[in-house]
Simulated assay, not measured.
Amino acid sequence: MARVCVCDDRLTVTPSGELCVIPGSLGLRQVLIYSTPGVHQFRKADYPWLARVYVKVQGAGGGSGGANAAAGELIARPGGAGGGYSEALIEVASLGATESVVVGAGGAAGGGNNPGGNGGTSSFGGFAVAFGGDGGTANMTTGTAFSTSTGIPGPLVGTGNGNSGGGGAGGGAIRLSATQGMSGVGGESRLGHGGFQRGGEGPGSAPRGRGGGAGGALSTGTSVPGAEGGHGLVIVELHG
């Protein structure tokens, strides 16, 4: 007589004889990636098998300021700070019917002698929040004498089961003379890298990956813009 065996760590037979999956026993089944800045919606009813979600949230990086030194003079700008990072494990019963997913936009590039914009906060409902990095300042005035511009602190720690801030500080800038200086490096992020620092005239440098701060601009008489910070990202792992 034929016999069917059921592995009881993932499957069960109901009293009525139905073979069913044990909720939460299958592990990771699908991954959702929200990469476009703005507000999105997550609906748990779209995944009837869902047992829990693990979310990874990356805040956006700060932009860097523009620089426009007078002829024969120099301005160097600091880099923008990297965005924060947060994670959270959430049981399906704790989720609302719909949860808002926010992807922060990278901070705007500054033009002229204006600072860079702040990076936007990313979040998954109220469970995991990662703050954006601040933009680079535009405090150094045009000149030829030695001068420095302080770097930009990384963002505060957000909320979640596991969050370490995660956003690196934007590097400071220095002017040695009318022709020698160094702009600041962009802050690192958990999911990206900051823009590079300049030792010669040029615009701010773009970060790579997600959430990095923009590198600072450097001017020796030409108006150069800053760069935009890296956009945030939200990754949602669906476990069934």
Rank of each mutant, 00 (worst) to 15 (best):
C5W: 13
D8H: 08
D9M: 12
L11W: 12
T12Y: 13
T12D: 12
P15K: 13
G17Y: 12
L19V: 09
C20S: 03
I22L: 14
I22Y: 04
G24T: 11
S25V: 08
L26G: 05
L28E: 10
L32G: 00
L32N: 03
Y34V: 02
V39T: 15
H40V: 07
Q41A: 14
K44E: 01
K44I: 11
D46C: 04
V53E: 00
Y54E: 09
Y54R: 13
G61C: 11
G62E: 10
G62F: 10
G65L: 12
G66L: 05
A67T: 08
A69W: 02
A70D: 10
G79V: 03
G79Q: 00
G80P: 06
G83C: 05
G84Y: 01
Y85R: 08
E87P: 04
E87G: 05
S94W: 10
L95I: 06
L95S: 02
V101I: 15
A108M: 00
N113I: 05
S122W: 04
F127M: 06
G132Q: 02
G133T: 12
D134N: 14
M140I: 09
T141L: 14
T144H: 05
A145Q: 15
S147R: 13
I152T: 15
P155S: 06
L156P: 09
L156E: 14
T159C: 05
N161P: 03
G162P: 00
S164R: 11
G165H: 05
G166I: 01
G167F: 09
G168R: 01
G168Y: 01
G168K: 01
G171D: 10
I174P: 01
S177V: 07
A178G: 14
S183F: 03
S183H: 06
G184L: 06
G184I: 07
G186T: 05
E188V: 08
L191T: 03
G195V: 11
Q197F: 09
P203L: 02
S205W: 03
A206C: 06
R208Y: 13
R208S: 14
G212N: 08
A214C: 12
G216N: 06
T220R: 15
T222G: 09
T222N: 14
G230V: 07
G232Q: 08
L233M: 14
V236P: 00
E237H: 14
L238Q: 03
H239Y: 15
